[in-house]
Every structure is written in C-alpha cells, then in structure tokens.
Nucleic acid binder design. Structure first.
Lengths: 343, 343
DNA sequence: ATTAGCACTCTCGATATGAGAGTGCTAAAA
DNA sequence: TTTTAGCACTCTCATATCGAGAGTGCTAAT
C-alpha cells in the first residue's frame, strides 16, 4: 500500500491536473502544495508512483499525469466531499420548483441542469416502465380505418400508437373493446402482461377476433419496447469542446458522434450503473474502446424504491470527480423527492 | 446583367468551390471546365465579377470564392435540378415503409434521414397544433390528489399533463367532468378554445367550481403552448465537424451551442420559412449575426393542406444547394403522403 | 534518507525560408 | 478591340531551425 507521503503527492498531482490540464512537475508540487520536502525528493516518489502504475508521463521529462489507476485511487480513497455553492443549490431548486407538465419534461430539465452545473455532457434515460402499472387503456377512432391506442401508467406516462382498425367497427364496438382491455389490464404491471395472458382476452370476445388479433399484437409490442427503452436525452455536448482534450477536431468529432448514437449510450449507461448508488467508471475500466479516454459517472432515480431511470455524466478522465458526485447526489435527492410527490 | 461568359465562369467557381472548399484560380477553371479561353481572360472576367460583388478574394493573390451574392445568383438562376441516386431513394423509402408508432417518431426519423443524406445538420419542428381538432379529453386519477389530463387531437397527437385534483373527488365525479369536457371540446379546433368559451363549462357545473377552475386553467395553458411549439429535433450536428469550415474548434463550438439553443432555432426556422415552398437563406441574408456564415434551407410539411411543421437544413454557405433542395423536395413529398394516409 | 547540482531531454513558440499558387499589368498577337 | 503570353509580385503554407523553459534522473554531498 502507499505510504502517507506518496498519497499526499498523488493527491496533489490529481488535484492539480484536474484543475489545469497540464502535466504536473515536482517543483509545482513543492511550491504550490507546501509539502515541506524538496523537489528532488518528490521526484523520487514520483518515479516510484509511476512504477506502481499510478502516474504516467506523456513524454520523457515532462511532468506527470494520473493514470486511470491513479484516478481510481483518488476516487476510492482521497476524493473530498464538496459542498455545493449557494448559486448551484439555487439553480437546482429552481428547476424543481417549477410546475411540471409531463414526467418527461422534468427529466429533460434535470439533464440540462446537470450539464449546466458540471460543465460536462449529461445523458439521461427516461422512465423505464418495467414495474409500472397500467392505469387506463383507451382506443379512439381518428378517421376511417385509423385509430389511436393510448396506454396510461401509474407514473403518468402516456404511450400512444397509431393503429389500423377494421372500417366496420362502430364506436360502441370500440367502447366495448376498450372496457374489456381495461378490465384485463388495469392495475397489472407491464411485466405481467404476457402474450399468454392476452390470449384470454381473445376468447372473451370471439366476435371481434380479427380486430383483437392485431390490436393485442401492437399493444404487446409497444409495452415490450417501453419496458426497456425510455427516451434518451443528452445535454451540453458542445460544452466538451471547451476542454483542451478536444482541441483536436478529430477527437471532438468522435465524441460527438458517440453521443449521438443513442442506442450505444443506452447500453453504456445500463452496463455502467448499479442500482441506488453512484458509480464511477474511469477510462479503460469501460469495456468499450471508444470510451478509453472518458469517464462516466452514473446514478439512477426512483420512486417508491422502484428504479425508474438512469442518468449520467460523461467527460474526459481528467474530470472533477468530487464536484460531479456532489451534484449528482444533490440532484438525485431532489428528483426522487419531486417524483414521489408528483405521482 | 451578366453576360454569358461571366455566368459560365461564376457557375464554374461556385460549383468548384462547393466541391473542394478551396479558392478557385483562373488556371483551374480554364483546365477543369474547358472554357476555350485562356487563364488571363478569365482573370479579367473574375476581376469584373469581384467588382460586381459576386466573388470575393480571401486574400490578395489567392483564388476567388463566391460571395453571398454569388451564391444567391447561382441559386436563383444557375442551380441544376439533380436526380437522386437509387441508393438515396431507397433510404428515403425505407423510412416511410416502416410502421409508425407516433407522429413524433415519424418526424424524428425524417430528420435523421435528411441529415444522413445531405451530410448537414437537420432541424425539424414537430406538429404545431393550431388547426388540429380535439378528438378526446380524459381525466384520470393517478393517486391521492394527483391526476392526469389527456388531450388527443385528430392528428393522433397526445398531450398530457399531470394535475392536482381535490382529494374528495370521486371516480364518478371525474367521469362526469370528463364527459362535460368532451361535450364542449370534441371537434373544436385548438384555436377555438378560448378562455371565454371555457367559462361556459363552469356555469354548467357549479358544484365542482373550484376543481374546474384550475383544470380549465391548466388545459388552456397547455393548448396555448402546443399551438406554437412543436418539439424540436436536431440531427447530425457532429457531421459539421467534417467540413474544413469547422477545423477551428472555436467555430465548431459556436455552431454547436447555436444548435443546442432550441428556442433560437425555432425562431430562425419560423422566420426563414414560407408556406409550401422551399426557401433558401444565405449567409448575411439571415437577420442574425450568429448565422452570418451559414445557409439555411427550409420547407414545411402539411396534411390536408394544413401546415403541420417546418423542417430545415443548416450548413456552411458553401453548401450543396441543389442536392439539398432535391432531397428536401423528395422527402417532403413522401412525408406529406405518409401523413395523409397515417391520419 | 534527503537534497543540491547538473547534464540531458523534450516541447513549444518564434523566426526564417522556399515552394506553390495565383494575381494584375503590360505589351504583343489575333 | 479583344485575347493572351509573359513576368514580377504577393501571400500562404509547410517545413526547418533555434533557443527558452520546464522537467527529469542521476550523482554526490549533507
């Protein structure tokens, strides 16, 4: 294990590098962090730390920068808990004081605040409906042959889907079918609504067999989809171009295309996050080589203990971990609170 | 007016510059575009064209590049109509063959195709509900004190809004209120639902006066909002970094922040577009100085002659205007068609 | 065990240089 | 009168050179 002095030096390097993005030299540390030992001694320690894998040197005779392992050590053992400033707190509160329209908007706003406060890119996966309960089902006729299937869940999420209806179906037929669906589906969780279960509806109403066939098919497909895939929002990807890490346009381009690939980002967030805790994934710890130079910090939000969605911050490995963690902590608390009173 | 030879030269310069992003010299034109006149003659003509404001010189003794006026002339008089390739046609058809879930998804997909095919950034304002008719209103109880107001329009768009309900309201109260709302609102256009009109509902049901008060307020607010503001989608902003215009990170950063500002982009699209035609706005023709170096091509989509939304492509003034116009034309046709059968 | 001293390494910014592309002008050719 | 060849000139851009500066590792002294 590292001795006390090595730890102090490692901490100084990580902190300084996060702040300046410049490789940190022995002289800087001695002067700026008042270690009480000479640069030469620090140099020796730094050589040790490099050998142990905590530091790296961009090129011979430059200062040192933290390696992924260095950041990991910092994150696990050294990172301070920072208090948010009054300004930051106000900004968070402001969002959650506004009256909400839809769940989705609240979540989108949340993503925006996180990005504003951290200056990194924020990504959020909206409500996943796994454990939600059906509140209401409605089938409406829009025009000849076209209808709209509407499903409402107890989280206030509304799914809808344009469907084809047999032209001879009357309004009262539709009402009967709607009622039947409601009888079968209301208060069931999305997970409980299996194709098998739905087969029973068909036997209830043989007369509409054909209409029900497609209807049920569409409904199941739609629910299946919403189980896993909440909508994805990303905010503040342009902010990243402020960091020296992206002064090279090629790198900026790669990062932005990555963010635009929603499916990929969903997989990343899902893989990275663990329920009810903040997880930090640093550089090469990510199993995707495209993310080798990024760190991802994720957490989830929930209501009544049920996991609803995931959000995360992505930035260069030289990330202000402690600030991001504080902000995520605070925002999650507010969001969970808002959700539980909202619903 | 320009004589024939000047026009030929101007065209050559615009075409070449759009393709290469390099200032075009007299020699290049003589060789590549086989004018049958010598570079010296071309030089004289180019000097004239510059004096007339159609060309500009990035610096003394570089080649010429088109000015905004030059592009404008090209767009108005010289631009060829290009046929789409089979590949491009297929890509467009593929999108519109898929079964649609919601109107919004179709629109989002459309935006994505446009960006894919043009390689520029595509922006789209989703359905504005001005002239849509209310199909159905539903008020559901989600939990104690919380409810959900759902409004369905004849375009299959579903608005929803979480609301507070008096705790003592029973389910049958809600049904009565829902029915009342439906009686008053169904088949009305969004524009027709004014606060005055809604006052009459209250007089119908004095017993629920307080509940109705907030309910009506929320409903009107929600409709008001949806009249103007469809959701905004942007696709392919990262693509822009491929253009040499953005090799400077600072410029890339500015562009991306611009795109992220949805409100601004909505204003731009609305100001730029004219109903039922493709409009092209070049560089300084845009009244916003932030857009001085960009061109915007917009058009709108509609169903049954009613304007539903706007979409546009934004890119550097050195834009492949004819290609973008062809693609927008084709996509609008397909989209309008899809919308009319969808609804 | 620590540190001063020093030679050495590497980057980075400034400066110089030359090739290349292109122009405008003049004078000759058509 | 119009076109063109020729040429001197301008400006950019890529490359090379150079020195300052920052930082290191090693050695020897403390």
């Amino acid at each position: 294990m590292l001795d006390d002095r090595k730890i102090k030096i490692l901490r100084a390097i990580v902190v300084d590098y996060i702040a300046t993005a410049e490789p940190v030299g022995s002289r800087t540390i001695a002067r700026k962090y008042r270690m009480g030992i000479s640069p030469a001694t620090i140099r020796n320690e730094m050589a040790d730390l490099e050998e142990l894998g905590y530091l790296a040197q961009p090129y011979t005779s430059a200062g040192r920068i933290p390696s992924d392992k260095g950041y990991r050590f910092y994150v696990d053992f050294l990172m301070p808990v920072v208090e948010l400033s009054q300004r930051e707190l106000n900004e968070i509160r402001r969002i959650f004081k506004k009256r909400v329209k839809e769940l989705e908007d609240l979540i989108e706003e949340t993503s925006r605040v996180i990005s504003n406060l951290t200056n990194y890119t924020s990504i959020i996966i909206g409500p996943q409906l796994h454990e939600s309960r059906i509140k209401h089902v409605e089938i409406l006729k829009l025009s000849k042959g076209k209808g709209l299937l509407i499903i409402v869940t107890n989280y206030g999420t509304v799914l809808n889907q344009i469907i084809e209806l047999p032209e001879n179906l009357t309004d009262s037929d539709l009402t009967r079918i709607s009622n039947l669906f409601n009888n079968f589906l209301v208060e069931k969780t999305v997970d409980e609504i299996t194709p098998d279960y739905m087969e029973r509806i068909k036997s209830e109403m043989r007369e509409y067999e054909q209409a029900l066939d497609t209807l049920i098919h569409v409904l199941i497909e739609r629910l299946e989809e919403s189980k896993e895939n909440g909508k994805v929002f990303a905010s503040g990807s342009s902010r990243m171009l402020d960091f020296p890490e992206f002064k090279d346009v090629e790198k900026a381009r790669n990062f932005l295309s990555l963010i635009e690939e929603e499916d990929f980002m969903v997989r990343v967030l899902k893989y990275t996050s663990k329920p009810n805790q903040i997880t930090i994934s640093i550089g090469n710890e990510n199993p995707w080589k495209e993310l080798r130079e990024f760190s991802i910090i994720t957490t989830n939000f929930s209501v009544g203990g049920k996991n609803l969605g995931i959000f995360g911050v992505i930035g260069p490995t030289r990330m202000d971990y402690s600030k991001v963690v504080s902000i995520l902590n605070k925002v999650t608390a507010y969001l969970n609170d808002a959700l539980s009173t909202l619903i």
